[in-house]
Amino acid sequence: MRLVFSAVLAALSSVILLFILLPIATTVTLQFFNFDEFLKAASDPAVWRVILTTYYAALISTLIAVVFGTPLAYILARYSFPGKGLVEGIVDLPVVIPHTVAGIALLIVFGSNGIIGNFSPVRFVDALPGIVVAMLFVSVPIYVNQAKEGFASIDVRLEHVARTLGSSPSRVFITVSLPLSIRHILAGAIMSWARGISEFGAVVVIAYYPMIAPTLIYERYLSQGLSAAMPVAAILIVLSLAVFVALRILVGREDVSESQS
């Protein structure tokens, strides 16, 4: 009986894993049969420029999420106050809004006639800042929730003891809370960066140009067909995987040195 159960578990689980891996692996593998096209794309400076723009915009968006999202995560993990549920709901809001809708909403605010866009010296529409806000909008819930989980996992008595040892709340935050949740914060930052790179819907509405990788792939697919889009897609898959794995290993190392109990 137990054997049957295990077999069913394994079978159903492998369906999901195959479902994820098959398209990705196929896209990459097919490049070997069409290596010339792949080389052409890989040696195209435009492609690399676009990829760099994507990574760079996602990096800025992640940094903003870390700077502004960490205090929010700490508040949500440590304090209870009236309306906390509402605040948590607001943080999660971008997850449930369709991304094109998010793009429209951002365009309304950051567009040249928008509340912010009208007065801002920075141009958002069809500019890098537009890409950054779109990426930030969709990825910030991931970061805040991860960091919140990190802070919540710290025993509050550690913070209490630190206070009795003469540390102000801000010093306790820097010397105890932050180092103890650093793994969650790093993991959250990686996930939020990855989410930013993969965003298309919100970005394309507010900033079709400068092009990011998902936009370029979409454009090549529409104008030149699947075979033109595929090499770029494959490059992006390989690169993203490499960066993702490298960062995971980095955080994982942290994991080993910090694991205590």
Binding site: R157, G166, Q260
Partner: peptide, 20 residues
């Protein structure tokens, strides 16, 4: 007074040593 200004030493249950 906040805890940091009291000069009171505190050893909580399970000691709460800083694990890092």
């Amino acid at each position: 007074l906040p805890p940091e200004k009291r000069g009171v030493g505190f050893v909580p249950q399970d000691y709460a040593l800083f694990p890092h």
